[in-house]
Simulated scan of single mutants.
Amino acid sequence: MSKNISVVDLFCGCGGLYEGFKQAGFKASVSNDIWEPAFKTFVRNNNSTPFVLGDITDLEIKKKIIQEGKGSKVLIGGPPCQAYSMAGQRNVDDPRGKLFEDYLEIVNNIKPKFFVMENVKGLLSMEHDKQKLNPAEKKELNKIKSLENDKIDLMLKRKQSKNTNKIKFSIKEEEKLEEIKKKLKLLKINTSNLRVKVTETIKKRFLDLGYFVEIKVLNSANYGVPQKRERVIIIGSHNGLNINFPEPVYLERKDTFNEEIFRKNHPNWITVKEAIDDLKNKSEDVSFNHVFTKCGDDFKKKIKNTPIGKSVYGGFSDAYFRCPPDEPSRTVKENHGGVFIHYEKDRFMTPRELARLQSFDDHFIFEGSKSQILVQIGNAVPPKLGYSIAEVLKENI
């Protein structure tokens, strides 16, 4: 197998997915993102890679990407996950969701042998309206959208009420929320024939271009990432090429397993402590992205009183969460200041510690403010997951 297989990297962010592909012997013919802090990080760590900074919906930007990417064997990256995230309103009318159309156009022009898209699990349950609906059908679907917005507003208020005495969530509001949920359930059953799964549309649109698509959820912890990050991986192959997904390398050890047999076949998941324990007493080092978060005395007391496996605020399941040391972390997200709390030290984890949980090597340096760096880390595909995907793709190129 020859090295330096050419790859186009779209929506690349800071470069997590490409970092894994690079380690597997791929080389980017061109990379693209719209956000300058991510661009600066990517270029710092890949200074010889052609980079097109800008919006792919811009015709000139798209033209440059296609010109630079012609002849590439693989195209990686997908539209931003925020448009589909289970944590927010999964609205396919979001402009970011329409970036899929630009992705299709670029794939059709470059015609790689494979493409790889990554997204959140919420994509699997997303639906969109069918085309050619009559006015009455559209009216029924608009009722669903209106009720969904009301539900989101009430759920947000309920969540906020758990974290501050300034916001109250009344019994009437709780009853209203339950009533909305019942109405939504009935409406969705009655209009199920008017909607179609987003994943089915993705498969059909790519099949029209000559690509067969397979979709699978992969848990990053199974590939050496000290984080239980589950993501939808979409792989498309041109003209009948085989599609393989990586087999797990690491597995969760079950108490019922024979430990000796287990260790012989699969090492245990990498834990938070194994990943970052050597950094717990390290002094602040800005050049290494090991930067501490400053907070007031009251919040310091709250951190000190937060046990392992709990959040400072009850309404937040992941933000301000004190990670158990002896298992992989929960999903690292773009929570800005609301990141994980160290399992032993009464402080927030630093960007470098979070980068370790995302499986970035220490030589990978992030550019930007601390807040911008946290967003880059939270949005990245773990390099070790990318590496595992790249390795199985190589077998069929």
Rank of each mutant, 00 (worst) to 15 (best):
M1W: 12
S2F: 11
V7C: 07
L10C: 14
G13V: 07
L17C: 07
K22A: 08
A24T: 01
A24E: 04
F39W: 03
R44N: 10
D55K: 04
K63P: 06
E68L: 14
K70A: 14
S72N: 10
P79N: 08
P80C: 15
Y84M: 15
N91F: 11
D94V: 10
L99R: 01
L104F: 08
K111N: 00
P112S: 04
K113T: 09
E127R: 07
E127F: 08
D129L: 05
K139C: 05
N142L: 00
D150W: 08
I152D: 09
K162N: 02
N163V: 08
N165E: 06
I167H: 08
I167R: 02
K168G: 11
F169R: 03
S170E: 09
E173D: 12
K176F: 01
E179N: 14
I180N: 01
L186G: 07
I189L: 10
T199Q: 00
T201A: 09
R205F: 08
G210L: 05
F212E: 12
I215T: 09
K216L: 11
V217F: 02
L218H: 06
N219Q: 02
S220M: 01
A221I: 01
Y223R: 04
I235H: 06
N239F: 02
E247Q: 12
V249L: 13
K254P: 04
E259C: 09
F262S: 06
H266Q: 12
P267H: 04
K273V: 13
K280W: 15
K282F: 03
S283E: 15
F288H: 04
F292Y: 12
G296C: 12
D297H: 13
K304E: 14
N305H: 09
Y343K: 05
P351G: 09
A355E: 01
D362V: 02
F364G: 05
F366N: 07
E367M: 01
G378E: 07
P383I: 02
P383Q: 06
L385H: 00
I389K: 01
I389V: 11
K394F: 09
